[in-house]
Structures are given as C-alpha cells and as structure tokens.
Simulated assay, not measured.
Amino acid sequence: MTTGTPPPTKTARPRRSRVLRFLPLGLVAWLVLEIWLLTVVAGASSGLVVFLLLVGGLVLGSLVIKRAGRRAFKNLSEALRQQQSGIAPAPDSGGGSALTMLGGLLLILPGLISDGLGLLLLVPPLQKVLSRSAERAFERKVRAAAAAAPGGFGDAFQQSRIHRPDGKVVQGEVIRDDDQPPPQQPDAGGPQLPR
C-alpha cells in the first residue's frame, strides 16, 4: 500500500576535489622518488656524501628559517612602533618571509628534490612571482565566496579594499542605523515640551 510520499533518497556526499583525491598518491610517489634518488647518489659516490648532503640541508634550512623569522619579527615590531607613533607604516617591500620559511622547511626535509625546491624558493624573483600569483588566487577565492553568499565575509573584504582615484586605500568602518529603534513620536494627548 502506498501513502503517496516518495521513499527517502540517500543524501549525496560532497565530492572531494581532484587535488585532495590524488594528494596521498602524490606524497607516496614523492617519497619513493626521494629514496630512489638518494640511493642513486649513494651508489655513484658513497653513503658519506649522502649523509653530508642531508646534514648540510638540515643546517642550511635551520639558518634560513631563523633568519626569516628574525626579519619577520623585526618588520612586525617596526610596523607596530610606527603605528603607535602616528606615522603611516611603510608599504611592504615584498620580504617574502613566508616563502623563505617554506624554502627553509623544504631544505630541512631529507631528500634532494625537496632541497632543490627549497633552494628555488630562496630566489627573490621567483618569490615575487609566486607571491603575486598566490595573492591573485586568494582574491579570486574571496570573490567567488562573495558571489555565492552575498552579505558575508567576502563583501566585507571587498568593501575594505575600496581605492580612491589617486590609488590610495581608504580605511573606514561602516556604521548602520538599522539596529536602532525609530524615534518615538510624542502622543498628542500627553505632555509636550515647550517650543
């Protein structure tokens, strides 16, 4: 006997992105390639050379991360000092501290491919290109989120980046009077204030 209601359907699981689907396979392939390359270098020279390469990468990566961390802390404290003294903070000169730290981390990881990638991330022109492309990708994601849900975080981010015609960014805050109750009208029969 039917009641007229359709049978319940299974809810579809959200699809994983292609990157998340193949990330574990990529990590395993990278690990196997690193081990194979280390054995090839050890066979061509000796195990001591491989050990010295790994220790050298560890030491160099530690120094790079330490230097980038100090530079980032110095820039932060300088910006805070300028802000407290009322001076407009100088625009960021593209220090690339995050990419420098990532390069140092890749140098610390054992393996020759990660060392090569870490050394590439320490090249300033490549850092600028990667930084600009990451910023554009972030802005695209924020615009897509703003289009999907109007009135959310994306709109606030977009509004905070309003530029004046001369290219300067105008910092501001939007205050709405929607939350305040409307002013009450005095009753015609009640006491009135003198005019």
Rank of each mutant, 00 (worst) to 15 (best):
L121W: 04
S45F: 14
Q83P: 04
S93Q: 12
V59L: 15
V50T: 10
V49R: 06
V170Y: 03
A12T: 15
A12F: 04
V142K: 07
Q127V: 14
Q185R: 13
R81C: 10
P110K: 07
I87D: 09
F153E: 06
V64D: 00
V123A: 05
G151T: 00
G69Q: 10
H163L: 15
R13Q: 14
D155N: 12
R81D: 11
S45H: 13
G4W: 01
L112M: 09
D177C: 09
I35F: 14
R176G: 10
I162D: 09
D179K: 05
G111R: 01
Q158P: 00
T5G: 06
T2P: 12
R161S: 09
F157Q: 08
G47N: 11
A90G: 06
L25G: 15
H163D: 14
T2I: 07
L105D: 09
L76H: 01
V170K: 14
L112R: 01
L25I: 10
V41K: 02
P24Y: 06
D115V: 10
R15A: 15
L121T: 00
E139W: 07
L107R: 07
Q82A: 13
V50N: 01
D179T: 07
G47H: 12
S160E: 02
T5L: 13
S45D: 05
P125Q: 03
P150L: 05
S77K: 08
A146W: 05
G95Y: 03
K10F: 13
L122P: 03
P191I: 03
T11S: 13
T11Y: 00
A144P: 03
P181T: 01
R70C: 08
R18S: 12
Q184N: 08
L99A: 06
E78C: 06
Q185W: 00
Q184V: 10
V123C: 07
T3G: 12
G118W: 00
V174T: 09
A42H: 02
A88G: 01
V32W: 04
G94I: 05
A145R: 07
E139M: 10
P181F: 02
K168T: 14
P181G: 04
L107D: 05
K128P: 00
L53R: 03
K10E: 15
G103F: 05
I175R: 06
V169K: 09
P89I: 08
G95K: 04
R70M: 13
P8M: 03
P7A: 14
G172H: 07
K141Y: 14
P24D: 04
T5I: 12
P125Y: 00
Q180C: 07
V64W: 05
Q171E: 11
Q171R: 12
A68K: 02
G103Y: 01
W36I: 12
R16T: 11
D177W: 11
R15D: 13
M101H: 01
T3E: 13
F153P: 04
S46Y: 02
G151C: 03
A145K: 10
M1K: 05
L48M: 11
R16G: 13
L121N: 04
